[in-house]
Design a protein around this nucleic acid. Structure first.
Lengths: 111, 111
DNA sequence: GCGCACACATCGATAAACTATGCTTCTTCC
DNA sequence: GGAAGAAGCATAGTTTATCGATGTGTGCGC
């Protein structure tokens, strides 16, 4: 996997986190690795961004989480998506598709 | 054109502005309208975001501009893209495509 | 025993967008 | 002639989110 050059566009991390949790519960560190893996090397998730985002989403009720054990046997805080979180994911997904199509429209209209 | 619901993702405005200026010089207000038009109603460009962005890009040497006259006969500051600006556009465009593909990859891998 | 991957967390700096506001000019419509 | 509104610029203050750095501790392999 090539080194990511893009980092993140602010405002997209929520969608990414919620997306991986749609498939099932996972702990923070694994969420980051899952995003980076599925992002094809174009996305880097810094820990200084991830953990505040997880707290934020939990405070908003879109995620729930509690202490558990990771696959490698270490203590880890496991998160899963809630009902409101699924609804938020659907909305964020729609907005992303709209916005991305808009940007592509602008770029291809003039370039 | 439906009311935009997305506004902007931080970090994308530079690419959008540079894109419309690739086609030729334009003044600020017209740049905003051009983006919104080509964005298919998914993108809104607020003046409080646009003018600081134009100053920024001008300060960075990616844009040049001077006072002139708009199509409707009013005084307006007309901007055009510079050599470094074109190079920056190419780079930003590449990064955007990479990033957007990465997000789509994450979303479709788990949802 | 040493180093590294795993796993959490927070602080401070930075950057960018949004809201609100204010100014001028030109056109349109009554 | 006057009012309203679109065209056009600009900035100050607030907010929000990412990032880099830093710190703690555990388990595994060599």
């Amino acid at each position: 996997m090539p080194a990511p050059t893009t980092a993140l566009l602010p405002g997209t991390l929520d969608l990414l986190v919620l997306s991986v949790l749609m498939a099932g519960p996972l702990h923070g560190y694994a969420i980051a690795r899952a995003i980076e893996g599925a992002g094809g090397g174009a996305i880097a998730v810094e820990e200084g961004s991830l953990y505040p985002a997880l707290s934020r989403l939990r405070r908003q009720g879109q995620l729930a989480g509690e202490w558990g054990i990771s696959a490698s046997g270490r203590r880890a805080r496991v998160y899963w998506i809630t009902g409101p979180g699924r609804r938020h994911w659907a909305q964020q997904h729609k907005l992303w598709l709209r916005f991305a199509a808009g940007v592509d429209g602008v770029v291809s209209a003039f370039a």
